[in-house]
């Protein structure tokens, strides 16, 4: 690990007219670190994620990213071409609904291979071999490689989306409720898989979730958001076991104990 962060976010705010999306968010993300952003719906987590991934432009504030060559670049000053290149090489974005992140009308293999072709790989055999490898890493049988994602279950689609994002070896992955809409046993397997991949690949990730169990399992650090503001942040275990802000206490005590 290096002694420099991967991403530096400073006083980031996004307003929708007079409404607050998120306000004055500041944090650093270190290489290999998983940061969970939790909060109820409407608390601004997804707005923050969209700003960080440059899918939305913030109203004010800055975010700098350390490129592979060690150069710091300010995200909102990069040209669109550079941002889009970054998005499909060094970053990944896992949507809550896999249909948003996948091409539903092309095969699983092509979905995984698209990023490779986008960065200039023009060897069919190699692209296919990489796709097979990645499908097996996300526990999808090799014989499903030519099926369209439409024929996949929800959990498989989500795993395919993850493979599609990780195939170019990104250093930073954004995840928006990666386990939303899946049943609990599938969630558990997906979380297990994600945790393994993140550790093996040394990925940094920002995971937006309303599920505290996801935060507990995946993340080292977490931020709790309410009404567009960060109300508490710290190590995940500390925040969950010893919540200090009244809202965090409410959130933690709202979990049903089975």
């Amino acid at each position: 690990m290096t002694d420099e962060p991967l991403l530096r976010v400073s006083a980031l705010s996004k307003f929708y007219g007079s409404r607050v999306g998120c306000e004055n968010v500041t944090f650093d993300l270190w290489p290999g670190e998983v940061l969970a952003v939790v909060g109820e719906s409407g608390s601004g987590k997804t707005t923050l994620l969209n700003c960080l991934s440059t899918r939305l432009l913030p109203s004010s504030g800055t975010a700098s990213y350390r490129m592979r060559d060690g150069q710091w670049r300010e995200l909102y000053r990069m040209s669109e071409a550079e941002r889009r290149f970054l998005m499909r090489t060094d970053w990944g974005f896992v949507h809550q609904n896999p249909a948003d992140g996948l091409r539903m009308t092309v095969s699983a293999g092509a979905n995984v291979g698209e990023r490779l072709m986008a960065v200039g790989d023009r060897h069919y055999g190699r692209i296919r071999a990489t796709a097979v490898d990645w499908l097996s890493r996300v526990e999808i049988d090799e014989d499903r490689i030519d099926d369209e994602p439409r024929a996949f279950s929800g959990g498989m689609r989500q795993r395919l989306q993850i493979a599609r994002n990780l195939v170019t070896g990104p250093r930073l992955v954004f995840m928006d409720e990666p386990t939303g809409g899946l049943d609990v046993s599938v969630q558990a397997r997906l979380l297990d898989l994600l945790r393994g991949l993140v550790t093996d690949l040394g990925l940094a990730a920002i995971v937006v979730t309303h599920d505290l169990a996801v935060a507990r399992l995946l993340s080292q650090r977490m931020m709790v958001m309410k009404d567009g503001h960060v109300v508490e942040s710290g190590l995940t275990d500390r925040v969950l076991d010893d919540p200090r802000a009244p809202y965090t206490q409410l959130l933690v005590s709202s979990i049903l104990q089975v």
Binding site: V106, A110, E114, R115, M117, I127, R128
Partner: peptide, 22 residues
């Protein structure tokens, strides 16, 4: 139009990939 402007043509090969796969 954006893809043409930024010369992002990976998608065109996705179509050819699908052909070979099928």
């Amino acid at each position: 139009r954006k893809m043409h402007a930024l010369e992002e043509y990976g998608l065109m090969h996705v179509k050819l990939y699908e052909d070979i796969a099928k």
